[in-house]
Write a protein that binds this DNA or RNA. Sequence first.
DNA 1: GTGGTCTAGACCACA
DNA 2: GTGGTCTAGACCACT
Lengths: 132, 132, 132, 132
Amino acid sequence: MQKEDVKKLEFSLDPKSGVPYYKQIIIQVEMAIADGRLSKDEQLPTVRSLAVDLRINPNTVARAYNELEIRGIVTTQQGSGTFINTQEIEISAVERERFLAEITRPFIIKAASYGINLQEIIKYLMELEKNI
Amino acid sequence: MQKEDVKKLEFSLDPKSGVPYYKQIIIQVEMAIADGRLSKDEQLPTVRSLAVDLRINPNTVARAYNELEIRGIVTTQQGSGTFINTQEIEISAVERERFLAEITRPFIIKAASYGINLQEIIKYLMELEKNI
Amino acid sequence: MQKEDVKKLEFSLDPKSGVPYYKQIIIQVEMAIADGRLSKDEQLPTVRSLAVDLRINPNTVARAYNELEIRGIVTTQQGSGTFINTQEIEISAVERERFLAEITRPFIIKAASYGINLQEIIKYLMELEKNI
Amino acid sequence: MQKEDVKKLEFSLDPKSGVPYYKQIIIQVEMAIADGRLSKDEQLPTVRSLAVDLRINPNTVARAYNELEIRGIVTTQQGSGTFINTQEIEISAVERERFLAEITRPFIIKAASYGINLQEIIKYLMELEKNI
DNA sequence: GTGGTCTAGACCACA
DNA sequence: GTGGTCTAGACCACT
């Protein structure tokens, strides 16, 4: 290998998701840390460059970085940039449950529209799990 | 049987969740349809009665019902009420299986990308099913 | 043939159309007169029987008949029923235009969603017309 | 060219039509998309500015935009505005012709059932096209 | 500045 | 009685 085969960090926004841009950025940073694409002391894109990349207002990026800093996930060094500050992301049980509900709901509803009920879904998933 | 095993429809709002009231109502109607507590041609509570029940403004209920109508989930007939409109899409058993596999895959992948595994999903769904 | 091969009058309501029931009934009576399924002195179904047929409130049928009477299209004979009162239905130019716009709009919009514009539609229709 | 041949987007409401304001706005946006005056990623007037223009309540504009969003026609991003979201469905030339035939047939039949013939339809559409 | 949510209350149309 | 439309105005979240 000539170089590290690292999954590069790529931000992307979904305007239709209803999730505010700044939150999408926060989640993506957190996820990148969680799966190792970002690690301690690495630098995030600058506010301006990311704003240009994503074609959004720099204030929006700044807000995301700011909230990440408040949560202790990144540290901003005046004049030099924003850096990852931690190795681990902890997501609270409540957040976890809420997130699970959020992604599960449309899945259940879509299945139901084809006449597939919860029991059937569970049965299918248990089959799947057994065969992993 | 000891008692009627009715799964009654009960609306409830959580003001602390951050989810707007009207969306909570939409979700509860959708879920009730998905798990069979509401089925075709059944009438929803009237706008006014639900508003009183939930102690919210009738406009908020109306907004939820209106969105459900635009999405084709309910039909309202002025002067008589709001009725469930869902007609399940008819598919064969084979298609059914294929369809289930098709919508399950991205769902599982998405969950996995957030560190949630199949076991956890199944556990959550069983919890859900119990509480219908 | 053994009997008159008459197109029978059949009322039907579409709850999803957004058009009030009483107006749907009015239109259907007018249409039936216009194309000869109903002619002068024929009797309409009774308010009660039609209400039962359509599974709607008798008041709704009564309202439709009442409006038809106001317009001079039918006459109600106390105790004997409601009868067609005219041979011809005249639709005002304004109504006609409005109706034309109403049925044209969704057609144009649907075409547009497939990238077909008005000019193209017109061209196609002119072709059609030439080949009749 | 003597002057820019711009088909500018102009909203206008007819209080006498009986059509609710919010529906008039929806129709005008849809038609503007259909005939190309509005295209993907263009921004609609802001809720407040359109409300001032039309001298109606901002909630009424918001309601129209909201319904357009539910239908997937526009996307709103809180804090930045409302944008056209229509992505035309891609079809081949052959499919195009077939599709046009397919949606035209029921349209013509419906019109005919109300005594409106092809010539009249074409005349109306040409009128429409001229006035864009 | 943008849109989102909610309330309060009026008046109308429909069954 | 039902839902539909619109206004006025408040407060919030996001860019």
